[in-house]
Each structure stands twice: as structure tokens, then as C-alpha cells.
Design a protein around this nucleic acid. Structure first.
Length: 552
RNA sequence: GCGCCCAUAGUUUAAUGGAUAAAACUUUGGAUUGCGGAUCCAAGAAUAAAGGUUCGAUUCCUUUUGGGCGCACCA
């Protein structure tokens, strides 16, 4: 529809012999003004002439019910109700039509997200990227891209040495052992490693040499430590796998630092003198030459840093899935870091130019203090889910619905805000089910389904003619629903799941207003509208990775 | 010190350069012999400050103030 309007305006501008201008067509803020609005009249200073001409355009006349000039010279266009009904049916029938040109003209997209390091606990910062990454993967898929879900986990390096060192201290103090710890539950094991990591950090200065030596040993697969390393690594991975399942994510491939450390280091050394250079015994990338900053890629000890590992990661990822674009969903504190490694990668291999992209996620802060896994100032994900579940327990009818509402509440609280925005995490808000929340949307869906069931039309409702008596709130809802498709396209282009969250919230609000005002059962048009609303809410929630139970 | 990001009701968040800046939480007052009251309706309250760009600025540019993050052997 937008294309038809744009084409009509273009034609009119040519007919009037006006210079081609960059006009825009959008949805006006206030729905009572119309479905579409253009500023073409303002820019050309001839709103009335353009408006009059538009009225005579046959393609436009076929779909428009009203065209007039308003406000500062905007031309508002209302669409005929039957056309809107057809549009909604189209969206429901075909699902989201394919993005015309794909994401930035590219089709194969790797989404790399979550990145929890082993030997630590998973906190709400990881959770945010996990939730956003999964939503993006679904949205891009819906928009026509071929998506590959990747995860990259730091299973080797100083943090692992610290954690193992600290955990061993704790086990000794508590007169326990690695064997005994094996009997603990998954969550307890993860928590133990988390405590060990905090301990390792606390004692690092005093025991630096010991821990550094342990780190080197782990890299070297030293016999004395290898079995403990394998054992604890598995604890972490199993623990994370339980979250992936709970959050509805299935990775196509897990990548590990331990598998790219060697190749990465080799690649850096091979390009010593061209891309990299020696400095104080370490190998660095002279970022200043490119307006960036210098970073160490291989340490004096000969260990590859995070940077060098990325030099091994990208080629491996490309080999596994030759992506047009790889989106790294990572917190914005690493923006400077990514600028450096992307530049270095592009210098190593031209094919990476323009393919690597850092989606800079905002930080999650606790009210009042910063999250730090080093000091243990964190909210763990299982702790959070536990709390939310407890709060919702009395309201859900069965375990299945309870789990859906719990995860839905948490996911939605993350997805409703722009992902580049820093957010203040408030557990009370997340636990809440009122207002702009996941349970509100799920409740609205279940209620709509319930009405359809009562009416005996639980399946598909036949679209039928409307009359004025269906009420203005019904029309308002209709004028919103058909926009779903373009919202999905925009969300994919801008990598912004929050656009979908905002949209379905708007739909739910309008539906609830309509519901409260009118009796639905007994009116075919209202029933059709209810079915359409339910369908779109469900589809929208699904794109966000949120389940919509039929009953709750 | 250098660089990047951010600043909107009491709080947490919306708003491709457009019309009367939108919600939620909180507060106060209302709505059910009607299909799920986890709902709905109503009231109050905001663009950090000063310039600039233009038909038009919360949005773009400059400065100031106040926050966050990064800047060599961590990830």
C-alpha cells in the first residue's frame, strides 16, 4: 500500500512539473488523521494542488477513502476498510512476506550471541544478549534470511585458572573434594565455580605467580590439571545448556576459545611485520595507524589473548557457514575492542571487509551498583527465574503455563527496550505482571482464544462484511493490525526486536479497550477481528521467542 | 589526559527531522447480574542548560554541566 501511495505522489509531482523531492510517507501519530501521511506538500509549498491531483489518481482512488490537507500542510490519506481487511487476511495467510532485498542486501547471517565464559555463573548481562540474540535470529529468519546461531565461549584463559584455583581452595577448606563435588546439582556446581572465581580474584595479587602458572599448565594440557579442567568445563557447559533449552535457543554450533587459540596465535605470528609488530616482548596491533588504539595479541609469555583468538575464530566461523554477515551481539563496553579486531581481520583477509558487525548492546546495571562477576555482585539467572516464578505461582493454572509466563515475563522485560540502551535492572518491575509486560500480552492472547472458543469458532473465523455499528474501537484495532508486516521488516533491518514488542503491546492495548466496550460473541466482524488479533499477537510473541499458552 | 556512548513525567522506558512528546509503575477517583478484573476508563506530571542549521529539532551540529564505558600483556 505504501508503494502505491509513493508511486502516486511521484507521478503527481512529475505532472505538476515540480522538482523531484525527498518526500516521505508514514503513519501519522494520531490515527484519526488517517492511515498514511506525506510531507510532499510541505516541501513543495503546494499541498492543496498535490492533494487535488492525488484524488484523481486511479490507483490511489481504488484504495483510499479520504485524502485531505491538514496541520502544517501534511496530506493525510485514509484507506478503505475493506482494503484493510484484505490486508490483514493477507498477513495472516502468508505470514510475513519475505524481505525484498534481505538484510542490507545480504542473505546468510550468522548471529553470535550469549558468550558466557565457562567457570563463572550466568548473570543477567549474559541473559540479555541470549534473549536478544534469539529474538534477532527469529526475526531475521522471518524476514527471509538464512540464519546460523553461534555461540562463542571463553573456556580457557586466566579466568579459568582463577576459578579452578579458588574452587580448590574452597573445597579444601570445606574438607571436600572434586569427586564429592561431582555429586552436587548442576546449579550448585555452577555456584561453586562462581564462588571459586570470586575467591580467585580476591587472592590474585597475593598468589599471582601460582595462578599464572596454572593458566600456562591448562593451555599446555598438563596431566595434573587436565582432568579437573575437563570436569569443571563440563559442569559449566551443562549448566548453560539448561538455560539455552529453557530460553528456547538451539545453537547450530558452539565455538570455543580453546579451539581457536592455537590457529589464532599462528595467524598473528604469520603476519608479524605486516599487520602486527613486536613491542616489549609482546605482539601487538598498532591501532593508532588506523585511528584506533594498540592492543596486545600475544603476551610476553607467548599466550594468545582474546584478540588473537578472534583471529582464529572468524576464519573458522566462515568455513563452517560462509556468512554474508556475522553479527556479534556483545555489550557496548567492548566497542573499542571490536573496532580493533575487525580492522585487524580485514587486513588479514579482504573477504572479511564489511562482513563482521558488532551489535553494541547496552549495559545492564543493577539499581545503584554495577554488575561484577569478579566480586560476586551479580543477579544469577536461575535466581531471577526462581523469584519470578514464585511471584506468578498463584495465578497460573498448570506448570506448563507457569513456566511460559515466567520466561515470558523475563524475556519481554528485556526485549521491550531498545537493545543499545543501557538499562537499570529492577527486579520488582520484571516480576510485575501489570502494564507493559509479557504476562499482559499472554493474558490478552489467552482471553481472545477463550472468547473464540465460547463462540464456537475456535478455529478460523470467516472474514465478513462490517457495518458502522461494530464501533470505533474495533476500527482502531483494524487500522493497527495490518501494519504488522512492515514492523517485522523494519525490526529486521534495524536489528530492533523492541519494535515488535512495542507493536504487539499496542495491539493488545487496543484489543482490551475494544473488548471492554463491546460484546464480541454474536457479531461476525468482531469475532473475525478477535481471531486476527490473537493470530498476530501469537506470531509477534513467537518472533520474540515467547510462548503463548492457549489457556493460563 | 584522550576517545566513544548517554541525558525525556517522581521512577523505568517510547517517539525513520514533522502535527497536541507516547506508555507503564506509583498516587487518586471510577467501571462487572457481559465473552477470563492478570482487564478497562479518568486525573496529575517531562525533552539537563545555552547557542546554531531550516518551513519545522527530543532527534542533526557546537559549547557547558552531569553520568556510563573504554584506552598494553584480562575476557
Amino acid at each position: 500500500m505504501k508503494q502505491i501511495i509513493e508511486a502516486a505522489i511521484k507521478k503527481v509531482l512529475i505532472d505538476l512539473k515540480l522538482k523531484p523531492v525527498n518526500f516521505s510517507v508514514e503513519h501519522p501519530e494520531n490515527m484519526s488523521w488517517g492511515d498514511f501521511s506525506t510531507n510532499a506538500g510541505i516541501i513543495t509549498h503546494q499541498p492543496q494542488e498535490i492533494c487535488d491531483r492525488l484524488k484523481t489518481e486511479p490507483t490511489l482512488a481504488k484504495i483510499a477513502s479520504k485524502i485531505d490537507v491538514a496541520g502544517a500542510g501534511f496530506i493525510n490519506i485514509s484507506i478503505q476498510i475493506p482494503v484493510l481487511i484484505t490486508q490483514v487476511n493477507q498477513v495472516l495467510k502468508d505470514g510475513v512476506t519475505r524481505l525484498r532485498q534481505g538484510f542490507g542486501g545480504r542473505r546468510k547471517i550468522m548471529v553470535e550471541f550469549a558468550h558466557p565464559n565457562t567457570h563463572k555463573e550466568m548473570h543477567i548481562g549474559h541473559m540479555r544478549t541470549l534473549i536478544v540474540g534469539e529474538a534477532l535470529a527469529r526475526i531475521l529468519t522471518a524476514a527471509g534470511a538464512q540464519v546460523f546461531r553461534a555461540n562463542y565461549q571463553g573456556d580457557i584463559g586466566p579466568h579459568v585458572a582463577k576459578s579452578i584455583w579458588g574452587t580448590e581452595k574452597i573445597l579444601t577448606e570445606e574438607k571436600s573434594s572434586w569427586q564429592q563435588a561431582e555429586k552436587l546439582s548442576l546449579t550448585e556446581k555452577a555456584h561453586l565455580l562462581g564462588r571459586g572465581y570470586v575467591r580467585g580474584n580476591q587472592d590474585y595479587e597475593a598468589n599471582k605467580k601460582e595462578m599464572d602458572r596454572l593458566n600456562v599448565k591448562i593451555y599446555a594440557h598438563d596431566k595434573n590439571i587436565e582432568s579437573v579442567y575437563r570436569q569443571t568445563r563440563k559442569w559449566s557447559l551443562d549448566y548453560y545448556a539448561s538455560f539455552y533449552e529453557r530460553f528456547g535457543t538451539k545453537y547450530d554450533r558452539l565455538f570455543f576459545e580453546s579451539e581457536v587459540a592455537g590457529p589464532g596465535k599462528q595467524s598473528v605470528l604469520n603476519n608479524l611485520g605486516q599487520v602486527f609488530k613486536k613491542s616489549d616482548g609482546a605482539v601487538v596491533f598498532p591501532g593508532e595507524n588506523y585511528g584506533l588504539h594498540t592492543r596486545v595479541f600475544v603476551t610476553q609469555d607467548g599466550n594468545p589473548t582474546y584478540e588473537a583468538k578472534d583471529m582464529g575464530l572468524a576464519p573458522l566461523q566462515f568455513k563452517v557457514f560462509p556468512f554474508d554477515r556475522c553479527i556479534h551481539v556483545v555489550a557496548n563496553e567492548q566497542t573499542g575492542y571490536f573496532q580493533v579486531i575487525i580492522k585487524a581481520l580485514e587486513l588479514l583477509d579482504k573477504k572479511f571487509i564489511g562482513r563482521e558487525y558488532h551489535l553494541s548492546m547496552g549495559m545492564v546495571n543493577l539499581i545503584g551498583k554495577k554488575i561484577s562477576s569478579r566480586t560476586g555482585e551479580i543477579i544469577t539467572v536461575d535466581g531471577l527465574l526462581e523469584k519470578v516464578k514464585e511471584n506468578l505461582k498463584s495465578l497460573a493454572k498448570n506448570q506448563e503455563a507457569l513456566e511460559a509466563v515466567t520466561v515470558g515475563a523475563v524475556k519481554y522485560s528485556v526485549l521491550k527496550t531498545g537493545c543499545q540502551q543501557d538499562v537499570a535492572f529492577d527486579i520488582k518491575k520484571t516480576v510485575s505482571l501489570d502494564g507493559n509486560s509479557g504476562p499482559y500480552l499472554q493474558y490478552t492472547y489467552a482471553r481472545a482464544k477463550s472468547v473464540l472458543e465460547k463462540a464456537g469458532v475456535s478455529g478460523k473465523v470467516r472474514p465478513c462484511w462490517y457495518s458502522d455499528e461494530v464501533g470505533p474501537s474495533a476500527i482502531l484495532l483494524l487500522r493497527t493490525l495490518y501494519r504488522f508486516e512492515e514492523v517485522v521488516v523494519q525490526a529486521a533491518q534495524e536489528l530492533a526486536p523492541n519494535l515488535i514488542a512495542n507493536f504487539i503491546y499496542d495491539v493488545a492495548q487496543k484489543f482490551n479497550g475494544f473488548y471492554n466496550k463491546h460484546k464480541i460473541v454474536g457479531n461476525d466482524f468482531r469475532l473475525w477481528l478477535t481471531g486476527a488479533t490473537a493470530g498476530i499477537i501469537k506470531r509477534g510473541l513467537n518472533l520474540l521467542g515467547i510462548d503463548a499458552p492457549e489457556k493460563m
